[in-house]
Amino acid sequence: MNSYWIGIMTQTGIYLLAVLGVCILTGFTGLFSFGHAGFMAIGGYVSAIAVKFGDLPLPVGLLLGTAAAALVGIAIGTPTLKLRGDYFLIATLGIGEAIRMILENWEFVGGAKGLTDVGSGISFPLVLCIDILVIFMLANFLRSKHGRNCIAIRENETAARAMGINIFRYKLLAMGISCALAGLAGALLGHYMNYLQPTMFNSVKSNELLIMVIMGGFGSLTGSIISALILVPLPEVLRIGSAQEWRMVVYGLLVVLIILFKPTGLMGYRELTIRGIRNFFRKIGMLFRKQAARKEE
């Protein structure tokens, strides 16, 4: 096992967090964010500044990055979550681009040339632990009362409001969690690469995050995980000729097809559980038994 493949897996684990972040937002508020890479950027740069200029230890940096992204997310969410779906979309697009451009013009963090030597120390085991911890916490959250409230909002907002659920507060919560995850991912990425540059967080990245969530099914954690596990390493596996452009063409086509035929994506709103797998096999078993019974007739 060489460091090249470990590196790919580490990057996958890092982007997975951001994908989960987008998943939480879209799956549980029904709002799409076109600028989530901007929150990754916030996390990355805040952590980098803390470690490089503030001489703070890495974990503190990561925490600060995550918190900063969450705070900015909530600050921005407060006025925008009330907007209609596509207004929110354009707002997030604008925010993502604005954040990137501000960073490009900010000399203190190197501007467009980027920031080097921001501090390293991210290893695959660390990322794996963080991933497992986060997934554990998210799954727990979804089973909790708060999580079920979020799901209620997603299913039918009016009914949820009638039940007394404070829609706005939960949407804001989802936004906060979502941006926190993106920020964490950004901070991890920066320290993994030991280098940050605003172009690492451009709209292409935001689009890719969104695409992964759509393909996996935006209401499902497992869907997003599977999607990320397959799609993040894909560019590395496909290193031939115009493969990268064809990859994007296929993505675009898949997105259109998915929206046309199965908008809920691969996993829809379901999660992968052991009971689910057992049921699946049971169904197949029953199918075979039915066939056998029919033959005997």
């Binding site: 076109f34 675009g252 898949l254 259109v256």
Partner: peptide
């Protein structure tokens, strides 16, 4: 369909066309 789906489809088309 929800209006958001139309936006996403549009995004997909735009990515396809550009590439």
């Amino acid at each position: 369909a929800k209006r958001l789906y139309l936006c996403i489809a549009g995004l997909g088309l735009s990515i396809m066309a550009e590439n």
